[in-house]
């Protein structure tokens, strides 16, 4: 029982990290960025490339090296996110929703098969694996790397929350998500804020990618597909566009999956997650923390 709780929370913190980017972008430009999961994949591959180029890394330094590489990867995936927004999404602002969604699918496809063309279609072993002692807490087996990764994830989320709540850019983000045109009239540089949003969201996904690579030890070019879907699910559960909701949604989804696969069998894990998504979308599309809004004609 405690083991399930712990596993759920651990996986959930990954989901939360990626869900944040999904939710932020959606909150600001109402775009479902299908490519977001692939940014996570890109992050993992950038980490892979960086670590491989360092050569052998002694196990004692692996945590330090990993954090450095994670920073680098965040920078690059953030840049990739900004580039994608510039080239693919910005020209379509104001275009029909269908066109934008299809573009997002195209971007996702390009990222996946771009990486496949460069790094090869077969799974790669991540050069650094986090290993460490396993503790026994209330009957749950908890490993040191798990604790480290969760701490990193939590630190990133706290940082993000501070940024959004306390800085002027954060305020601008919140105001754009409420009313883009009004924000424009109030002198907010909407494009700059959107660029920053993409940077932050993509950087978080990139961090999650490196962490996942180090934890699971294996990466491949399609690894972002399912997790992207799940991050979206997490964002919806929490209330899409809502930052705290995305974090909460990630944890809830992690728990639901952990218990679901315990009861129904691991092979149904993904089915279970999507089932929850469909349930939420039909019964409470605004999520746990979202507010009900009447759409005006």
């Amino acid at each position: 029982m405690t083991q399930l709780l712990w596993d759920g929370l651990f996986v959930g913190s990954f989901y939360a990290l990626i869900a944040l980017g999904y939710s932020m972008v959606y909150g600001i430009i109402k775009l479902l960025n299908f490519a977001h999961g692939d940014i996570y994949m890109l992050g993992a591959f950038i980490g892979f490339a960086a670590l491989t180029s360092f050569g052998g890394i002694p196990a004692s330094l692996s945590i330090g090296a990993l954090i450095v590489v994670m920073m680098l990867s965040m920078l690059l995936t953030g840049g990739a996110g900004v580039l994608i927004e510039r080239l693919a999404y910005r020209p379509l602002r104001g275009a029909p929703r269908l066109a934008v969604l299809i573009t997002a699918v195209g971007v996702s496809f390009s990222l996946e098969y771009g990486v496949a063309a460069i790094a090869g279609p077969n799974p790669r072993a991540f050069p650094v694996r986090l290993e460490g002692d396993v503790f026994d807490v209330l009957g749950a087996r908890i490993s040191l790397p798990q604790i480290i990764l969760m701490l990193i994830a939590a630190a990133l989320m706290v940082l993000l929350n501070f940024y959004i709540q306390k800085t002027s850019t954060g305020r601008a983000m919140r105001s754009i998500s409420l009313d883009r045109n009004a924000s424009l009239l109030m002198g907010i540089n909407v494009n700059a804020v959107i660029t920053r949003t993409f940077f932050i969201g993509s950087a978080l996904a990139g961090a999650a990618g490196v962490m996942a690579g180090a934890y699971y030890g294996k990466i491949d070019f399609l690894m972002g597909f399912i997790i992207g879907l799940k991050a979206f699910t997490a964002a919806v559960i929490g209330g899409i566009g809502n930052i705290k909701g995305a974090m909460l949604g990630g944890l809830v989804l992690g728990l639901v999956e952990a218990f679901g696969s315990e009861w129904f069998g691991g092979q149904w894990r993904d089915v279970f997650a999507f089932g929850v998504l469909i349930l939420f979308l039909t019964l409470r599309p605004t999520g746990i923390l979202g507010e009900r809004v009447t759409e005006r004609v």
């Binding site: 080239l87 693919a88 020209p91 379509l92 275009a95 066109a99 934008v100 299809i102 573009t103 699918v105 195209g106 971007v107 996702s108 496809f109 390009s110 990222l111 996946e112 098969y113 771009g114 496949a116 063309a117």
Partner: peptide, 13 residues
């Protein structure tokens, strides 16, 4: 597939 993906974006834009 990379080409298809890029083509999709280019066509939409």
């Amino acid at each position: 597939y990379l080409a298809f993906g890029i083509l999709l974006v280019v066509v939409m834009v």
